[in-house]
Design a protein around this nucleic acid. Sequence first.
DNA 1: TTGTAAGCGTTATCAG
DNA 2: CTGATAACGCTTACAA
Lengths: 340, 340
Amino acid sequence: MRSKASPTITTIAEAAGVSIASVSRVFNGLPVRAETERRVLAAADRLGYVPNAVARSLKSNRTQQVAFAVADIGNPVYLAMLREIQPVLKAGGYRLVLHSTGADVGEEIEVLRGLGRRHADGLIISPIRVTGELLREIDGLTAPAVVIGSLPDGARVDNVRADSRTGIDLALRHLADLGRRRIGFVNGPLDTVPGRHRDTAFRAAMARGGLPVDEGLVHVGAFQRDTGFEATRRLLDRSPGPDALLCANDLIALGALDALRAAGRDVPGDVAVVGMDDTELAAVSWPTLTSVSLGSAERGRRAAELLLDRLRTPDTGPPAQVITVAPHLVVRASTSGGDR
Amino acid sequence: MRSKASPTITTIAEAAGVSIASVSRVFNGLPVRAETERRVLAAADRLGYVPNAVARSLKSNRTQQVAFAVADIGNPVYLAMLREIQPVLKAGGYRLVLHSTGADVGEEIEVLRGLGRRHADGLIISPIRVTGELLREIDGLTAPAVVIGSLPDGARVDNVRADSRTGIDLALRHLADLGRRRIGFVNGPLDTVPGRHRDTAFRAAMARGGLPVDEGLVHVGAFQRDTGFEATRRLLDRSPGPDALLCANDLIALGALDALRAAGRDVPGDVAVVGMDDTELAAVSWPTLTSVSLGSAERGRRAAELLLDRLRTPDTGPPAQVITVAPHLVVRASTSGGDR
DNA sequence: TTGTAAGCGTTATCAG
DNA sequence: CTGATAACGCTTACAA
């Protein structure tokens, strides 16, 4: 243990025989006489002085912190965003406050309110469910925020969104090119943003491709491996069964692979499987998984850059921007067979 | 946009016709006349008042934040810790400030200094390299900190460590039971804490098992998939080659599986493979990977609990504690063959 | 129960 | 270049 209470600017001023203003100047690189600087630094060093960031924040009204809020940081999609966001913020001189809300809208709203309390200077949030209450809270924000995920038109905050419509189109076209016709779809909850979008996109893309949607081959569950496993087991019971499976995320697809393997079906020979999000799991699974990349990493990076822009120019700047990141299909063994 | 400047306690006091003390009391649940409370809340609501957390922090000298510093949050081991730490802190009323230092000792030291600057009330850090400078900085800390990973004896901070010695022992015993004798070892950098420990532990365990260490079957690289791939390619060139491979983490093991597959070797028939850390990758790979769990999640949880204890009882409490989390072996297809 | 006033540790203005 | 001094927004004695 060092001293009882940590020294403040006042302590140092007394010890160095100067005013607190001079101490402050030294630590802010403002012009001071060399002798003054020497004495201040000596005293500071001797007493172990460290500037108090909270006091500075109170004066400057900036915390140098940015909050990042997601439903579950264990989810590889959010992790991919985080990995891009963190270095961008750090380079901009901001610390990252992480909120894992557990998909609880109430907690997301708490985070939004925290912004008002000045816990952070800005916020990046990726809400899993966009309720009216959430939107109202977002609209009332007084500090800059960026939402990752789609927002209704007219929202007042910057918005970086994926294009699941095009993404699913890419996947279905790929499957159609492989001659697949009976395409099953395993989705997550329809009251979540991605769930709803992916459902709409699936039906639109099927229609566009002239493929009929067999409701018996559409399954809704959670965005998890279990759901993929159970849903696939059920779909395999039908006849005729699916010759391809589009899964609304990679976890579901992994579960599907488990079920297909357990049922002795060949992938992609009997059933081709496509995941979504192109997480690192896709490259590791067996067989490796063809997946629709919705550009999570890029969305994270763009969101962070957008926020830094806003932070730099407090009030001015363009009105709410909408950035859409282009998807792309990453073809691996679960559809292309041969190579792995 | 709401009003220009956000209202403060003073604004509300004036609007409600009471003193700032009364406003403060209302927002802190201290006893006030019902009528006073009504007027304050009405004014606050009308003007959109939100208490400023920074000002509160300055008075209370607590930020309600805890910093968590790791080399790379993309690393599944650190992610596993984070996933446990986050909810524990949240339940304790603390926000989590995440630092991903990129294995840079300088940056780790910056984080340590940030604690002094009162960015956070406490710190959990998992240093990849324990240098003298880092130790000195840790020793000088004035706020509570917990180190995940081994520290030299006599350190002044709480320490939650893994037991790689026992872990590697478990793995080698398992391989020996399977009749493997020529056991290769692919490790990460020896100047990192885990690298050094795992090297020592490997040699000790081999000696204990009466197995000779063939230096030609020991390879040191990075804790990454590439290293596993390259190292394994090289080890396979030797003759006699290895009949088992112990990899110092799961990423290395995945690279080893790649190389074995590319070389047409059967796993575990020709070569058994064991990883370390038991990350989620182990359950997904092909074949699924036997791995030594060093209890990352539990280490994270214990660290967070320890820190909360310290935070609750500022100065008292026991001297620096050392907690060792027991490892265990998770057997999967890369050694046991049959089931997957 | 309520108000006044003194801090918390900085930064910044304004005279010297 | 330097020193008083007034904020920043809040909590908390201490009086009333």
